[in-house]
Design a protein around this nucleic acid. Sequence first.
DNA 1: GGATACAAACTTGGATACAAGTATTGACTG
DNA 2: CAGTCAATACTTGTATCCAAGTTTGTATCC
Lengths: 231, 231
Amino acid sequence: MNEIASPPKQKRTSVGDIVDYLYREITSLRLLPGTRISETDVAERFGVSRQPVRDAFRRLETMDLILVRPKKATEVKKFSARAIEKSRFVRAAVEASALREASKYCDKAGSYQLDACIAMQHKALAEMDARGFAKLDYEFHEAICDIGRVPYAFEVIQVEKAKVDRLCMLGLSKEQRMPELIADHEAIANAIKAHDGDAAVAAGMRHLSRLDETIAAIRISSAAYFDENDG
Amino acid sequence: MNEIASPPKQKRTSVGDIVDYLYREITSLRLLPGTRISETDVAERFGVSRQPVRDAFRRLETMDLILVRPKKATEVKKFSARAIEKSRFVRAAVEASALREASKYCDKAGSYQLDACIAMQHKALAEMDARGFAKLDYEFHEAICDIGRVPYAFEVIQVEKAKVDRLCMLGLSKEQRMPELIADHEAIANAIKAHDGDAAVAAGMRHLSRLDETIAAIRISSAAYFDENDG
DNA sequence: GGATACAAACTTGGATACAAGTATTGACTG
DNA sequence: CAGTCAATACTTGTATCCAAGTTTGTATCC
């Protein structure tokens, strides 16, 4: 019943460590949705008492990563269609605003930043470096927020993205999608550089919509990991 | 050192109760930013052990309402200029999206809903019922999200609004502002009913910008409650 | 053979005792 | 009188024990 991998060796155990560890395990999908985890079990594996584990669970609970059912069990939270919709909406809203701001404030330096990032994405495509591409994708969206002078926007995008990333790891690799994603980025960059906010938003929304297909596919193929009750 | 008011009488004490109680105390500003609160103190006042209080603290911590400094003390979190900016940005982005959606989908029923809400706001103004107006203001924004078919948008707005509401209670009462706020609402409603998304967003952003002046004033008058380090 | 009831083993919730670190306050010394 | 150092009183962090509830397995009875 416990597919929990042993934690890496570390002397300094603390609530933060446990949270970080479980966070990585869950978001990386090494702990699948629905997996039951026990306070005593985690405590033993970390060589600490239940107390710090309890604290860690509380924090993970507010992150919507685990579901604590009193007196019953604690398990990795399943995906919720409604939560995904909400996350997508927030991300779309924030990204749209960031794109508008970026279109307003983009200057020479910003244009160069975008072009450079896209150039490296082409390079990653040529080398079939999916991992590198993921990082560049990350940096591209960060650059947009920087150019738009809304650094907190990227923080929000990151948080929302993390929720969906867990889901997307169930789908097929990004490698096949790289070409069209780069094309999206180019359309976005061009609109920003042309100071055309509406076009930038339109391109950005097209970019986001690609996620919808992926999620829809996963929802069918991995229905077991979805919570039909929602929540 | 402890200005914590005694909790209301209640037999069934639980983590949720403590969270709710402290949440109200903090957001209502009965517990001022910087006030030190102790686990043992709260535990005694509730007649429980430190354990449930700790759990409650963890949850309030992730809500950004308290700041736990290990081995030192726990205090009500001060206001952070950066957090306020971030909250404002998120709220603006989400509200803009909701306004666009509402402008798309508004029908007869939606128009009536908006008009009815505004009519009641006029009534609250005539009666100088600030408390009732606050609730109607709340309902107005909820109606927009309903019409736009983005119920989760209102959840986000609520969360972000709560953060700023705590701050705004330091400022002058809303009573003086009611007329201009109603005028804003009318402009927003008219734009939505005319299916003019751009105008709705513009009016909505004007509405939000009124908050900026209020916050700026508070920041000067109540600098003691602001965290100069930010974070 | 099937259903029901009881018991044992699991889970988290809560209480208490102890450990570790910080700040404050007091005394002592220059 | 001022400065420094140490002790004490505070804080949260951790460990352990007990309580309460759910599930599950097993034995017994029909």
